[in-house]
């Protein structure tokens, strides 16, 4: 029983760590730019596809397969270049427009990126073959866990800590928090909001693309994989509170672990349970568990 519980929790945490990266990208952008970026799911998908290509290229170039994680991270980082392109090319024109308009625009980006993926990689699911199994398994609390899952969980935690550190301790973090809190005041104090927006949006994109690249060995890249995740990420930010990083962390854990428990107990409730929690949060604490806190 205990072993099973540990198994359920570990698989829930694995799912949560992926969700966190996507939700964190959503949060950081919303926190500062006040745009609910639906395209964060597409960045995740894009990261996954580029990850597959980078791994294939690196194996062909003679990099030892054991180092494929480096290729993945490199792929995720490189493709984050779409972030500034989307921000400068599209989003900056709609900062002063209605929210629905912004939402529509990011949804348009979702559709465009799906087409781009289809053009570049085709429609068949892509995967990195058996690399997922390369690192073997570990026994944790009596449960057999793929080591790669632990790497993903570890990477997600590390990224969470880095973001936490950046927001709390660095100058850029302070500027982000200030901008999230009061945009006019920050500008009056000499913050170049244009640069802040580009950097924040790139950071948000990066979280998605690196997340997608990291997860790909454990799964397969499919064109619509981002849309599937954005729905869950939406639940995460509602539970955690829009714009809050801590909210993304806790929300992802809640959604990931509850989903896992539901699948093991009442599989029919898999999605329903999450939305029950969402409704409960909306009724009892409309701003989410960590709502109101800046970035």
């Amino acid at each position: 029983m205990l072993v099973h519980l540990a198994n359920v929790l570990l698989s829930g945490v694995f799912h949560a760590s992926i969700l966190f990266l996507v939700a964190a990208g959503l949060q950081v952008v919303f926190g500062v730019q006040r745009i609910f970026n639906l395209a964060c799911g597409s960045f995740y998908a894009l990261g996954a596809y580029v990850g597959v290509s980078f791994v294939q290229a690196s194996v062909q170039a003679g990099l030892p397969p054991g180092l494929f994680v480096l290729a993945l991270v490199a792929g995720g980082l490189c493709v984050a270049v779409v972030g500034p392109v989307v921000e400068r090319g599209l989003l900056r024109f709609v900062y002063d427009r209605d929210e629905t308009f912004q939402l529509l625009l990011t949804f348009a980006v979702v559709l465009m990126l799906e087409d781009v993926i289809r053009m570049l990689w085709g429609t068949s699911p892509l995967s990195t073959g058996g690399l997922y199994l390369l690192y073997g398994q570990l026994k944790v609390l009596g449960v057999t866990v793929p080591v790669y899952n632990l790497i993903v969980i570890g990477a997600s935690l590390l990224i969470a800590l880095l973001i936490g550190y950046m927001l709390a301790r660095t100058k850029f973090g302070r500027i982000i928090r200030a901008a999230a809190d009061n945009r006019e005041m920050s500008e009056a104090l000499g913050v170049d909001m244009r640069r802040v927006y580009v950097r924040v949006f790139t950071l948000g994109t990066l979280l998605g693309t690196v997340g997608g690249a990291l997860v790909i060995p454990a799964t397969a890249a499919m064109t619509e994989m981002g849309i599937e995740l954005i729905v869950e990420a939406f639940a995460v930010v509602v539970i955690g509170g829009l714009g809050s990083m801590r909210g993304a962390f806790v929300g992802a854990l809640v959604v990931g672990v509850l989903r896992s428990i539901a699948i093991s107990t009442y599989p029919e409730l898999e999605m329903l349970l999450i939305y029950l929690i969402v409704i409960a949060v909306l009724v009892l604490k409309p701003r989410g568990l960590f709502g109101g806190a800046a970035a």
Partner: peptide, 19 residues
Amino acid sequence: LWPKLGVTDFTSHIAAIQQ
């Protein structure tokens, strides 16, 4: 088990099957 079409992570489902 009834995952939606398009789900890309079955680790939790597999935990339930193991149990």
